[in-house]
Design a protein around this nucleic acid. Structure first.
Length: 222
DNA sequence: TGCCAGGCCGGGT
DNA sequence: ACCCGGCATGGC
């Protein structure tokens, strides 16, 4: 338990502490948010979610029955609103038809099975599926995103050409499958990604030693 | 102003 | 098997 990823986590944790990702919104809002935030800043997504909540539509069945044009208008602030409305519908169909609208039932199915079902939905790719499993279902799967890719490659821990699953396994091979750990780890990586890439857009994932000098160099073998 | 955000899909080589 | 354009709004 002292590989490079443990060191990175400890450093991030000490610097930023808990990120409180998706606390208390309830699993359904998390699912909706996971779709709406695809390649979109969370700030925009918040407005769309507020619209849905204010309209009283934050249940699987209600949202599934909402006419497409109305749904599009409500989520417009999140961008890509036409395609995302369809993606939400596709996902809602799985929840309502296969699981009777019960998230509890959905998340009690074996993770690997559910993951494949999610991936079979048009508009749900690996990151969205993993976000739903981890942040809505509290199931231990690691979420990889663009910044995760950049920062790991920047340090030479993976290749720049590594794909989603290589990166995911890189984490899961080194870490205990702990829901809280996976939750915080991904959120912390996104956090440093924001901090850095706001200031210097074209970076390839800045060295963590520079961003978080406290603690000295990161050493793969110690 | 232009570029980017917590991706994914479909069509073309 | 890659590579690329499309999708769209709001913030800096």
């Amino acid at each position: 338990m002292s590989g490079i990823l443990q060191q990175v986590y400890e450093r991030l944790w000490k610097a930023y502490g808990p990120q409180h990702w998706w606390p208390g919104d309830g699993p359904f809002e998390v699912i909706v948010g996971a779709v709406l935030t695809q390649n979109t800043s969370w700030k925009n997504v918040e407005r769309a979610i507020r619209n849905l909540r204010d309209a009283g539509l934050m249940t699987p069945r209600r949202l599934a029955r909402t006419p497409l044009p109305e749904l599009e208008e409500l989520i417009r602030p999140a961008g890509y609103y036409r395609i995302k409305a369809r993606r939400l519908r596709n996902l809602l169909e799985l929840i309502v038809k296969r699981y009777g609208g019960s998230l509890e039932q959905m998340f009690s199915t074996p993770m690997d099975v559910l993951r494949e079902e999610l991936l079979a939905v048009q508009g749900v790719g690996p990151e969205t599926a993993d976000s739903i499993l981890l942040y809505a279902g509290n199931l231990p799967t690691f979420v990889v995103d663009a910044y995760t890719h950049r920062v790991l490659a920047r340090h030479g821990w993976i290749g720049f050409d590594a794909d989603y699953y290589q990166i995911k396994e890189y984490f899961e091979d080194q870490l205990e499958p702990d829901v809280q750990l996976f939750n915080e780890y991904h959120a912390l990586l996104v956090r440093v990604g924001h901090l850095h890439c706001r200031r210097q857009p074209k970076c390839n994932g800045c060295p963590l030693e520079e961003m978080l000098p406290e603690g000295g160099p990161l050493t793969p073998e110690s």
